[in-house]
Design a protein around this nucleic acid. Structure first.
Lengths: 177, 177
DNA sequence: TCAAAGCATGCAACTTTTTGCATAAACTTT
DNA sequence: AAAGTTTATGCAAAAAGTTGCATGCTTTGA
């Protein structure tokens, strides 16, 4: 399982609260690792119980207290161990494709409408990613080199979204008939 | 949840045993809906308990008995209901990308090797899909029209794999440095 | 001829993920 | 001024998914 490891990856770059981590997660690993906020809090709890991370409670005025989590040396060991062992094949669960596969029983207008909606959200995601890419490309070279690997994953996102949209165009034509 | 619905989709086209359904599943919906054999058997059981499918036990000589499942009218209702309600957004869990994101702590050679392995399996998958496409394209037009929607999902698979491989090429260059 | 792969299903235990709810203050929009 | 969003966390229960094991006969390949 590797939400645990995804969290360790993020905490290795900087300590943060569950809430901040979640925001960070959504703009990075979240594009290719699915997780709800509950799950992140649950995993933080269990990682702390297992000594892979620790936390300090920071009291704040006017805002709820936060627990700031940081990775421990044994957390770093575990992260390295995971990084150097083979990952599990990626999992996809795409209900829209299941629906299209069995779409002859569906209402055609509804199917079309749903496709358009998905196109819309995918365009938005693509734009977000392109915005992030712009920021990256504007960095000085030394900075860019530091983020080469995360940038690769960003590229993956961009290419995926573009391909998805290209496919959706094929799909639109077929379904409209 | 829609493994249930994926199963209903397949049983709506033809009744079959869990085992046969599983084989069928792997060559179709399995490309974009992840499920282990256990899960399929468990869902078949629960679908039968809920009256959405029924089964006949067929005794065979020299082979284990099989349960041949078929969709019931209420199964078809449920399938239609699902088809006409909005699907959940697709989920991706791609550990390789998490690894690359945090890859500065990883052993570079191991990372490279793992990428090459993934490239290999993706090439194989692409070839499988292209073979299926060949068969489809060789069908007479009336037949092709029948399978237009499943064909769309096949196109999705092909485009995804091709894009993945194109990305992997970018990745290879970055990681080699 | 011996091992491996295919046929065919499933229980039991465990882990992971999802869903729904709950709290509560501060700031922001209509 | 009321309504909604953001900040910040989490319990509890249910649903879904994974892992490991078990059975036993037949066919195919080395």
């Amino acid at each position: 399982m590797s939400l645990k490891h995804a969290i360790l990856v993020l905490l290795e770059t900087e300590p943060s609260s569950g809430y901040d981590l979640l925001k960070h997660f959504k703009r990075s690993l979240g594009y290719f690792w699915n997780a709800k906020h509950q799950q992140v809090y649950q995993q933080l709890k269990s990682l702390a119980e297992n000594g892979l991370i620790t936390y300090d409670v920071q009291t704040q005025e006017g805002k709820p207290d936060k627990k700031v989590y940081a990775i421990t040396p044994s957390g770093i060991d575990e992260l390295k161990r995971w990084l150097n062992s083979p990952v599990k094949p990626s999992k996809i669960n795409d209900a829209l494709l299941v629906k299209i596969y069995g779409g002859h029983l569906a209402d055609n207008d509804a199917l079309q409408a749903e496709l358009e909606e998905h196109i819309h959200t995918n365009e938005q995601t693509l734009n977000e990613l392109l915005d992030i890419e712009k920021i990256y490309l504007a960095l000085p070279e030394t900075e860019r080199n530091k983020y080469q690997l995360p940038y690769l994953t960003l590229r993956r996102g961009i290419l995926s979204e573009q391909t998805w949209l290209a496919w959706a165009d094929e799909a639109r034509k077929t379904i409209k008939k």
